[in-house]
């Protein structure tokens, strides 16, 4: 009962946002093109790197991240980030405004879970352009790979992509919650960008004493390294015993992040004092 209820509310959000996006059609098209352009530039950078080191050159020693393996990684980054941008990013940006202007009052009185409401209210359909491109790049890279993943990997991949989305979402909601305490958090987006920037590269590139520390911090403390690395590695490389540990850990990190994110959100709500109105 409750689930079907939430599902219907979510569908309404989807429909409303789509109606709004389609009202300003040119804006929608321009947004799609500009977010795709960022992706092309990024792809261009890696094409340039592999142009210099050859498509069989590796991005990190003994890591197996050659050109098409890495493009699987890159498409995974794209898929995960585009889902986060479509569903959660516009809402997280709006959240600090809700607090500053006191609009959160209206969300609190609605007979629905507040976190659900403020996380999914607005959907940015134009970010799905990146998702579509991510799927194309993924298919092409898999086609060019010498190695073909087995059925288990194909099934586990989307599951771990969703885990990645959940980890990023939890991080975002935790960061957004801090604006209840800080009143306003304008550097939120910057901070988010700099933090997730670490997730965009294979974890093998973090080497040396400093790199080891970075890898540990971003695997265990703030698990952003798990987000893309686990699904991408699962699909692009043959299964190895160490994969099981990673998969297990990724699952634990997902559950842990979500629980912690929700806890921080609820704690922050406790100290919410309405503004104005």
């Amino acid at each position: 009962m409750a689930i079907t209820h939430y599902w219907r509310v979510f569908m309404t959000f989807l429909r409303n946002s789509l109606v709004r996006d389609m009202t300003f059609r040119w804006n929608f098209i321009i947004n799609s093109i500009s977010s795709l352009s960022w992706v092309f530039m990024n792809l261009g950078f890696y094409i340039l790197i592999f142009h210099q080191i050859g498509s069989h050159g590796e991005l990190a020693p003994q890591s197996g991240w050659r050109q098409y393996e890495f493009f699987v990684f890159l498409s995974t980054t794209l898929l995960i980030n585009s889902i986060v941008q479509t569903f959660f990013m516009p809402n997280a940006e709006e959240f600090s405004e809700l607090i500053r202007r006191g609009g959160l009052d209206f969300a609190l009185v609605k007979p629905i879970d507040t976190q659900f409401l403020i996380s999914l209210y607005e959907v940015d359909w134009s970010s799905l352009a990146n998702f579509v491109f991510g799927l194309c790049l993924l298919s092409y890279s898999l086609y060019r790979l010498d190695y073909h993943p087995g059925w288990f990997q194909v099934v586990a991949y989307p599951f771990y992509v969703i885990c990645g989305v959940v980890i990023l979402y939890s991080l975002m909601i935790a960061l957004a919650s801090t604006s209840i305490w800080l009143g306003r958090n304008q550097s939120l987006y910057n901070f988010w960008f700099y933090l997730t920037n670490f997730s965009r590269y294979p974890m093998e590139i973090y080497r040396g004493p400093v790199g080891d520390w970075l890898r540990r911090i971003f695997t265990f403390l703030v698990p952003v390294l798990v987000v893309v690395n686990v699904p991408a590695r699962l699909l692009a490389k043959p299964l190895e015993p160490e994969h099981w540990w990673l998969m297990l850990y990724a699952l634990a990190a997902t559950v842990g992040s979500f629980a912690l994110g929700r806890w921080i959100f609820l704690k922050a709500l406790d100290s919410y004092r309405s503004a104005s109105s």
Binding site: G57, N197, I205, G208
Partner: peptide, 16 residues
Amino acid sequence: PIVTQIFLWGAIFHAN
């Protein structure tokens, strides 16, 4: 962002 770039190039040089 430069920190990750530096690690990336370090790994590329080492690997190849």
